[in-house]
Design a protein around this nucleic acid. Structure first.
Length: 229
DNA sequence: TTCCAGGCAATAC
DNA sequence: GTATTGCATGGA
């Protein structure tokens, strides 16, 4: 049986701390990534978010559905530069939002999703949302809900995305593509630590971008090493 | 030109 | 309950 944490250790050794979730107006940022906003925070792990940063993470999580992050950055900057990156502004400026988020695709759908979520966000009055409440919002599925909980609210849920599925299947860690099965697999084999979950998921994405975007996937050296353990 | 990107809801079987 | 389809821009 493979020790899941050993995969995390190897990924961290290879790629370093990822500074997720990117924030476009983070003060004192030390940008290390490419992309238009270079908003990766400089901490090793979770940083405390203020309300606008928390909201921005939620909006980014919706905009990045099946969409390249660089395109999401463009939409976020458009919203930010037009002073629309807040729940009330998004609700009150539906048509303008639709135009501004065009770079990140599916703009007809996502503009509605953003407004739906904004109403939900205001209804929270600063409270941390429950997962089942988030999932009732049209446009928020499991991955988006878990990304919001983990990165905006520091709630320890493990985010499963397409990359994660490719990784675990390719390594033969578990024979399933079911979201909840995979989430339970990670959560039950790791310390229940949101900082670990945040960094691990970010590292999986970074690694998968490099190794699981084009078939055949092949196998990298450090993962060969893990498979021998 | 074709393929892919940090999914989701609606519909079909 | 599981499989398929529409949604859309921009970069490789």
């Amino acid at each position: 049986m493979i020790n899941i944490l050993s995969i995390y250790d190897e990924l961290l050794k290879k790629y370093g701390y990822q500074g997720w979730w990117p924030i476009i107006n983070y003060k004192g940022v030390n940008p290390t990534k490419t992309g238009s906003i270079k908003g990766y925070h400089p901490k090793k792990y979770a940083f405390l978010k203020n309300d606008s940063q928390r909201f921005q993470i939620c909006i980014g999580a919706i905009l990045t559905q099946n969409t390249n992050w660089v395109n999401v950055e463009k939409s976020l900057l458009n919203l930010y530069n037009n002073n629309l990156l807040s729940p009330k502004k998004i609700i009150d400026n539906a048509e303008k939002v639709k135009e501004l988020i065009k770079p990140s695709g599916y703009f007809n759908l996502k503009s509605k999703y953003l407004a739906n979520f904004s109403r939900f966000y205001l209804s929270l009055n600063g409270k941390i949302p429950f997962r089942d409440e988030l999932l009732k919002v049209k446009g928020i599925g499991k991955e988006t809900a878990d990304s919001i909980l983990l990165y905006a609210y520091n709630v320890p849920v493990f985010v499963i995305d397409a990359y994660t599925k490719r990784l675990v299947n390719h390594l033969g860690l578990i024979d399933s593509n079911d979201y909840e099965t995979l989430r339970t697999f990670f959560e039950s084999n790791l310390t229940n630590d949101y900082k670990l979950f945040q960094e691990f998921h970010a590292l999986i994405v970074e690694h998968a971008k490099n190794n699981y975007s084009k078939k055949p996937y092949g196998i990298s050296d450090f993962l060969k090493k893990i498979k021998k353990n």
